[in-house]
Structure formats: C-alpha cells, structure tokens
Simulated scan of single mutants.
Amino acid sequence: MSQVAFQVSREQVLEITQEVFTAMLDQGETLTFERFEPVPDFADPLFAWVEMHADSEFGAFTGRAVVKTETETAHEITRSLLMLAPDEEVTEADLTDAFGEIANVVGGNVKALIDAVARLTLPQVGATPPAEDNAMFLQDLAIDWRGRVLVVSLWVLL
C-alpha cells in the first residue's frame, strides 16, 4: 500500500463535502463551511464510513472515509435527506440509510480523485468508530453545517 497513491487535499475534502450537502440536504444552498474553532467532544457520537479498494501503479491499497458527528446531528441529516418534518421521528433504519448515504457519496467522490480503478464498499454506521488497527490517519476536516459540527476523516489501511 502506498500513501502516495491516496493524496487528497483539505480543499478537495471541503469542496466534496460542500457539494454533497448542498445537493443532497440544502436544496442548492451552501450551508456547509470549514470549522476553525476547536471541535467539541461529541457526547453521543455516530460514525459512518466507506472503504475504497484500489489497484494502482503503486500497488494495492485501501482508503477509508469516515464522517463523525453527534447522533442528533445525524438525525437532522436524515430528516433533511428524507424531507421529514422537524418533529418527525427518525427510525434506526432511516438513520442508518441516510447517514450511511452521506458517507457513501463523500467516499465515492474521494474515490474519484484516486488515480486508479477503485471500488467502494457499502457504507457502515455505528456508535463506535471503525477499527484503527493497521490504519494510518491522513487528515480530518471539521465542518459546520447549520450550526452543527461534523468531522470528515481520511485513512489508509495498511
């Protein structure tokens, strides 16, 4: 595996996240911005991630895109994506599908930046992060969306 084959800039991650949220959640309005203040500790975190498996001139490698936020923010993302009323209950299945889809589309756009043929796994969603064993952290980007905080992280699995 090679980190050289998985170079994605912070600006690219921000642009991808803004495009995804603008198109999928905010009816064409950009409400997603880089956060420059410290990221608060998430009291009730939720994680969604996808992995990208690729074969390149540098060899085979796997990357991972992870989106982390408060569970309540993931509920708001779900309401927005599914066009639910603000007071409408979010089911566990809807939460998993919607928040997973956000990670899927962000990861898919990151995958498109890889200079190799790559495939994307199905998204996973959980209250705990994916295992970091044999994983090398590349970068994260804190995001403000509608006054809420998310973090998009990129990893290479070794």
Rank of each mutant, 00 (worst) to 15 (best):
M1E: 07
S2M: 00
Q3F: 04
F6A: 05
V8W: 02
V8C: 07
R10H: 00
R10L: 06
Q12F: 00
I16M: 00
E19M: 10
F21D: 02
F21L: 10
T22R: 03
A23S: 14
A23I: 00
M24D: 04
Q27A: 07
E29N: 01
E37I: 07
V39A: 07
P40R: 10
P40T: 14
F42V: 13
F42A: 11
P45Y: 15
W49S: 04
W49L: 01
W49Q: 05
E51R: 03
M52G: 08
G59Q: 06
G63V: 04
R64S: 12
A65M: 05
V66N: 07
V67H: 00
E72Y: 11
T73N: 02
H75D: 13
I77Q: 09
T78P: 10
T78H: 11
T78Q: 07
R79P: 12
R79Q: 14
S80V: 09
S80M: 15
L81C: 13
L81V: 10
L81Q: 05
M83L: 15
M83E: 12
L84V: 11
A85R: 14
P86D: 13
E89K: 11
V90G: 03
V90A: 12
E92H: 07
E92P: 02
L95H: 02
A98Q: 09
A98M: 13
F99Q: 06
E101P: 04
I102N: 10
A103V: 14
K111R: 13
K111V: 01
K111H: 04
L113V: 04
R119Q: 04
L122G: 15
Q124W: 08
V125K: 04
T128Y: 08
P129C: 08
A131H: 08
E132Y: 15
E132N: 13
D133A: 13
N134R: 09
A135P: 10
F137D: 06
L138T: 10
I143T: 07
I143H: 00
D144K: 05
D144Y: 08
R146T: 13
R146Y: 15
V149D: 00
L150S: 08
L150R: 05
L150D: 06
V151G: 14
V151L: 03
V152C: 12
W155E: 02
L157H: 14
L157Q: 09
